[in-house]
Design a protein around this nucleic acid. Structure first.
Lengths: 329, 329
DNA sequence: CTGAAAGCGCTAACAT
DNA sequence: ATGTTAGCGCTTTCAG
């Protein structure tokens, strides 16, 4: 900056003001400084700026995985919202581990980000402490069943499970199987299953069994699991999958083996991923506002005007979901 | 840090050494410092650290989009490699625009990252200048057809197109249609098409037409395009899609309309996405090392031992690809 | 409208 | 094995 100042014949402070568009600068000086900066290829050092000004345009983003399009959709929403306001996401993945989340949060907080995005509402005590000690603004996403640290942008996972169960029951199905993945480490899937179970119980229907694969969810895994489920003696009349990937794998299994859906077996998924529209048969699923959850969280954190240390008490913003009836139930 | 030092009864410098595990510290002092830090909930300020030490564990990542699983796979590879070595990705998306890439690179460079990942080999003059002026280490990914700035981890897009064409020709197809998306802004898809065309020309086969949708690629879009293509009078006997999303949409169209593949129409894609394995029919495609390209690039940039300002001249590392024959040709 | 001085929190370099 | 000094590049604050 000194070099630019020398070259433009002004003080370093004036250069700073020009670069940041702050304070009044005569047009003449401004253009001289801009030219000088251009000429020597000056690039601001944001580390210094952020250190001194005690604020960074950085938002920490902590997600369970990048291997599931659900989170890349969310990340996409966050990124778009942030980019628009000149913020940058800096992020890490937890692989669904609370310990890793804790370490990551601690590390990311050392960059003094002005905000942090967390997935879900369940975090270790230490994570919560670290966050509240740092006074970053927090946005939790995906879930609203529980108490947020500050603001949660999400939907009720439990209600999604309930609504799916109700719809399947309404269509006459009585004997169910649940198919999930990730060893059940996905807490939100667990909440959906919980809601699903509850409605079944109240209706006197049967949840024959719960299949939880240890693999990450994928179409291939869904196809495999479905093959297993359908080859057992206690064949159900409907399968509730923890998400669309698994469910569409199930559809593929049936398609490939001439099993008629929903006559021989009904299936339902969760998420409402775009590719479902391309399948030969429309999957019954819950459409979730993935991009929007990320986008809203990003907007919230990038909003400079919002009260910094929210005096408002923890609350959630329900972005809802819709049941896509489809043809598989 | 001063507070920690006071509490532990040592100098600030000692705290610094403990926090960073540098230099010799007696066990006694170390534990005193660690306790003190714990007690007051001390969190390093990496801005200050990076400013003073003139190095950051930050890697800038610039990708065209997050809306295509190809790039999220790559990002996943990058993230894994970086995380392992204590680096953090900070990133942005260009939406396939060179101008946005330029602005993004400039902005990200202001964080003084120690490395930057760029997609493809084509960048504006200004982008190249900004990068070379900053002395960050650069890794380009995806493509190797061209001259990298420094090191490229990728595969030959052109060769992929050529190999696909050869395989399809070998299977007796003669009249082709190409189906692409993104308004052709995807330069790598363009290179594949180029290789494809060339082989066709040499073999005297016909490229009946090229359909380029303005939408981002997706299964739904692929299904739509296929429907269009097959309803025209000059029906081809094979379709080469710019990627698997489009191609599997084509498969879905055929499946839903009782069109037999490859008898009535042959199809081929590109990428070898995992979900293909779940489809009722195996798509002929090129399997690309997406995660690996990201991972290798990440490892390279996070490798502290590597020569900083590579004296070595620009080169590429060919991670190759494999043709998955499948059943659709 | 512009400038001078001070200092953000840390670590490199040099003591001891 | 630990301490002292200086300064990274910027912005805050106060002057004019």
């Amino acid at each position: 900056m000194d070099d630019v100042a020398d070259r433009a014949g002004v003080s370093q402070m004036t250069v700073s003001r020009v670069m940041n568009g702050k304070g009044y600068i005569s047009k003449e000086v401004r253009s001289r400084v801009e030219t000088a900066a251009q000429e020597i290829g000056y690039v601001q050092n944001r580390l210094a700026r952020s250190l001194r000004s005690e604020q960074t345009p950085l938002i920490a983003v902590v997600l369970p995985t990048l291997g599931n399009s659900v989170f890349t959709d969310v990340l996409s929403g966050i990124t778009d919202a942030l980019t628009q306001k000149g913020f940058r996401p800096v992020f890490g993945v937890t692989e669904y581990s609370e310990d890793k989340e804790e370490a990551l949060v601690r590390d990311l907080l050392s960059w003094r980000p002005s905000g942090i995005v967390l997935a879900g509402l369940e975090h270790s005590q230490a994570t919560r402490r670290a966050i509240s000690a740092s006074s970053v603004r927090v946005a939790e996403i995906m879930d609203i069943d529980g108490t947020p640290i500050s603001v949660a942008f999400g939907m009720s996972q439990r209600a999604a499970g309930q609504e799916t169960a109700k719809y399947m029951l309404a269509n006459g199905h009585r004997r169910f199987v649940y198919a999930g993945s990730q060893d059940g480490r996905d807490l939100r899937a667990a909440k959906r299953l919980d809601g699903f179970r509850q409605v079944l119980r109240e209706a006197g229907a049967t949840l024959v069994s719960e299949h939880i694969s240890s693999e990450p969810s994928s179409m291939v895994e869904g196809r495999k699991m479905t093959s297993d489920i359908l080859s057992r003696p206690d064949r159900p009349d409907a399968i509730y999958y923890s998400n669309d990937d698994l469910a569409s794998g199930g559809i593929m299994h049936c398609l490939a083996n001439g099993i008629s859906i929903p006559d021989e077996i009904a299936v339902a998924g969760f998420n409402g991923l775009p590719f479902l529209d391309a399948l030969p048969i429309q999957l019954t699923t819950i459409v979730t506002p993935r991009y929007e959850m990320g986008h809203r969280a990003g907007q919230f954190l990038a909003d400079v005007n919002a009260t910094s240390s929210d005096a408002t008490k923890p609350h959630h913003i329900d972005l809802g979901f819709t049941l896509h009836e489809g043809e598989t139930c």
